[in-house]
Amino acid sequence: MANSNSAQNTPASPELPVVNPTRRKAVKAGFATLGLAAFAAAISPLRSAAKQTSAQAFFQNHYRELSAEDKRKVIARLEAETKEKYGAEVHIADDRPIPGTKFVYAINLSVCNGNGNCVKACHEENNHDRATHQSYIRVLEMDKGSMELGNGDSEYQGVVPKDGKFYLPVQCQQCDEPPCVDVCPVKATWKEEDGIVVIDYNWCIGCRYCEAACPYHARRFNWKQPEIPAEEVNPDQSYLSNRIRPAGVVEKCTYCLHRTRRGKLPACLEACPTGARVFGNILDPESNIRWILENKRVYVLKEELGTKPAFFYYFD
């Protein structure tokens, strides 16, 4: 049965039942060469992709394993890449948690009117892809008299606030028991001492298990390389926060740690014209956030799931 493949190549000697083994080898080698050439052609798009990645980027270690010197090199490389790809001069810092700080957010739903300025501010502050209008915040237009998310509408249009509606902004709840962190197979995401759940965008493998696990739809995936005009890039960046993310990794709200760890307020709060948003350090007894948690009847989203959000809602 072994001779049939080269039978077509032996018209000159049809009387010979046994095929010349040399010829058989030649035919096989021909097919092998053809196969290899087709293989090389098939994977050719990878070559251009490989050019984009340097050896340092490929072998870069996990953020938490990097020494100060390693971090300096990594950040210098990322800044140079941003300059090359986006034409923007940026500064990437490595903001670490402030000892004795645990950040907590609260929103007064009686005041929020669904104007969406927070969504836009997040989009700009965090260097999101322009075309997709990506943002870490989604605002649901809810029916008064119902807390059922199933009745909410995140694509509402027109003049707000509408009669009979209230507005529920949802972003990362920085859970104390974050399911997204548990499921990550490579520890690319973790909770920092100040309560912020972060991602090492250079370690994430893009399996999107965290996106499936999050009950608040707080995580986003970079389906392609984000596109931002050079003049619109926010140059004030941090490694774990708003630096422009690579394609193929998950990203998330970090309570603007590049601002909040430097004593500023999150961009979404600063942009809010209604004063519905309150942010602060829960460990500080004098903070506004502490007063609200102690004096208002606050609640959290999907409390029954046991995720223990660090994000509270209340009505006046």
Partner: peptide, 25 residues
């Protein structure tokens, strides 16, 4: 399905960071 197949080695026990036994993956 991986967004970053080039980082596949992060998933190898010993080489990368293997979130075992917490992650079902």
């Amino acid at each position: 399905d991986l967004g970053r197949p080039d980082r596949f080695w992060h998933l190898m026990p010993g080489l990368g960071k293997f979130n075992w036994p917490i992650s079902m993956l």
